[in-house]
Design a protein around this nucleic acid. Structure first.
Lengths: 384, 384
DNA sequence: AATCAATACTTGACGAAGGAAATTATTGAG
DNA sequence: CTCAATAATTTCCTTCGTCAAGTATTGATT
């Protein structure tokens, strides 16, 4: 946000973020929640209202026994500004335009024929134009773009240090994308982006600590502790996929044994299903179909996978104790085969009160990854 | 610290804490490290020097090629104030007096004949008097007492909610101890206290994130992320002892299977050693002796235990990525039997760069628990 | 209707915290 | 002896947010 005379930038950020993630809130409620005086809230809210980011709702009916002036809650004006988000995968670009409230207003995809930087950037430019020049005249109110990439991303500089899937090394993605689109670009790791999205606008909204676990070929985890995304001193964090849950389990490509990913990653599931069915050409969908049709052996594969995931979740709950955990990812397309076993594993290994940590197991539409990217640019906007 | 006209309390706290944990530091170095201006450091340091907590060291020799005024590093004056720390176990009290630099100046123990609150308090009073009235006239410069108790402790109020070992429920320990001793009392969980001690004064000094693991009957873990002790939204955190590392492993009293504690806790080790040796009266020390004498079966018990611990450490490294990990506890009296296996397990399951996380495996003298308690009171003092 | 208590919000005065930049201090090198 | 380099201090100023007093708006009570 632009600084202006007579403003209090930190409080403005806090107020905007709180209203964004916590729904309409009266100034008194904000003061309590943020630990600030009412005066500070009033002063911070004024410029936000004036610039069109917040508006005052009609007074709500009183609650208590006595009387008192009714509160006029502050709500965001989602239309005020739009944010682009694009998830870059190895074979396509998935893009969305979100409003300030992170609701998707437009979406589009674009296949990729390769992952070399120039090609991806060309397609990215085309995708952005397609989205912004579509219905709704979005371009006029869109100034920011978030990009989500799997791998090692340095967000402050927007450098993609290393992305195995894309086979990128040290790509200055932010700089390139800004030149290309003229938008302010933020680059973030895809799992982190999704975590931020769920933490701000999803099931983790308002929680001080939170974990998001994605299940797919890889099994990843974003961790929020004390309101901050955990990054790890050595650049590794949330690697739930390589927790060892079975000392005698199958070897993992990482060199470990019995890693969650080696039991519950989609590749691992396919591999185990092939072994046990004796059909070397079985696909993941085949395995799902067999399991659903009641094949005991294949069902066991999913049960073991669910158990391993649940065990991993319990590890997160036992170690960092998030307020809640959301499980998602393309692997959960077979949600029905996992759900029960994940919960069983979790309840078995979660220690004491950790077992009370609410678990949301829910497949997210793939578009959510792009929404996560957009959320990152919303976050950049709000906290800047 | 008492606020005084013309001071900047937050910076004072930051400066004192930085000098405490980071050795002598020049004002410029402090400014860089704390992200403050040199002016702020000067202002914060002045009252600390005046009140005797810091002193200026002689100028050090210059380093670079050019010239420049030599820095005069700030160092703490450890003698300025002393801090009591007492660890309360089920059968004895262990007390120390530390100086501001957390060096132990006096130590004493007192056996307990029971764990009922009145008895423990009586003995605590006697221990405190013994320590303060001993040589060195410590009483005059001691105003604070830290208490370390295993179990669920609410530090802000000093309430012991539940301590299984002591069989205490909702004991207002801080209040009782303050009435008894006239000192300002802080109560903290024992593992957390030890973690704070190692984070401020031990191997974790200066690290933004850090983990301490204690191995004994129970296996616990204190976690520091972003400079703050992790507490867990549901009151559970650092429960490394109940991570499941073997889905087919032995059942644990917690209801899980293959928990680290069920494989590597001292009770578990004794149990497994009895099984495999066929001697139902074997003690832990016996097992250690047998293993050292080359008994293959018993050695395997320790190897499996070490592997499980290493696996648990890897889980910590993979999930939160601390800058370093310290392993300690009375179980490590048999340090030599564990060390190698712990490292093997860690290296096998630590993912990518997480494996570079430095591991310190080191038995700590039992007195360290009391020092941890004293450290907590130092922390309370510095940050108050 | 007038008043009162209760609650929400606003305003003005003030103080705490720390930054920027000029100033002083102290060294080695030429 | 001067200059460049670095360290510490001082002065002045901005930012941020609190406190306390006031305004606004309601339901209940007289």
């Amino acid at each position: 946000m632009f600084a202006e005379p007579e403003t209090t930038a930190p409080a403005m950020t806090a107020v905007l973020a709180a209203v964004l993630t916590g729904g309409p809130l009266s100034r008194v409620a904000l003061a309590r929640r943020l630990g600030l005086s009412q005066a500070a809230i009033t002063r911070a809210a004024q410029p936000l209202i004036k610039r069109g980011y917040l508006r005052e709702l009609a007074a709500t009916e009183r609650s208590g026994p006595g009387a008192g002036r009714p509160a006029s809650p502050l709500a965001i004006r989602p239309d005020r500004e739009f944010f682009l988000g694009v998830k870059i995968t190895a074979d396509e670009l998935i893009g969305v335009v979100c409003d300030l409230g992170a609701r998707v207003r437009a979406a589009a995809r674009r296949p990729l024929t390769g992952t070399d930087v120039e090609h991806v950037l060309t397609e990215l430019g085309a995708l952005v134009d397609e989205l912004l020049d579509g219905p709704g005249n979005l371009r006029a109110r869109t100034r920011r773009l978030g990009l989500a990439v799997s791998g090692d991303v340095h967000r402050p500089t927007g450098l993609v240090r290393y992305s195995p899937f894309l086979r990128w090394h040290d790509v200055a993605l932010q700089q390139r994308a800004e030149q290309l689109t003229g938008l302010a670009v933020t680059v973030e790791n895809d799992v982190k982006a999704l975590t931020i999205a769920e933490h701000w606008f999803g099931d983790g909204a308002g929680a001080e600590s939170f974990a998001l676990v994605t299940v797919g070929t890889g099994i990843g985890c974003g961790l929020v502790v004390d309101g901050k995304l955990v990054s790890g001193a050595h650049g590794v964090a949330g690697e739930i996929g390589h927790l060892g849950v079975d000392v005698n389990g199958p070897p993992c490509h990482c060199g470990g044994r019995g890693c969650v990913e080696a039991i519950a990653g989609t590749d691992a599931i396919v591999g185990r299903a092939r072994e046990r069915s004796g059909r070397p050409d079985l696909t993941f969908d085949d395995a799902v179909a067999l399991a659903r049709s009641g094949n005991v052996r294949i069902n066991a594969v999913f049960a073991e996978a669910g158990l391993a995931i649940g065990c991993g979740l319990a590890a997160v709950a036992n170690l960092v104790g998030p307020a809640r955990i959301v499980v998602s990812g393309e692997g959960l397309a077979a949600y029905d085969l996992f759900d029960e076993h994940i919960r069983t594993g979790f309840e078995r290994q979660a220690f004491g009160a950790a077992a009370t940590c609410p678990l949301t197991i829910r497949p997210l539409p793939f578009e959510q990854w792009a929404r996560g990217a957009a959320t990152v640019s919303i976050q950049t906007f709000v906290t800047s």
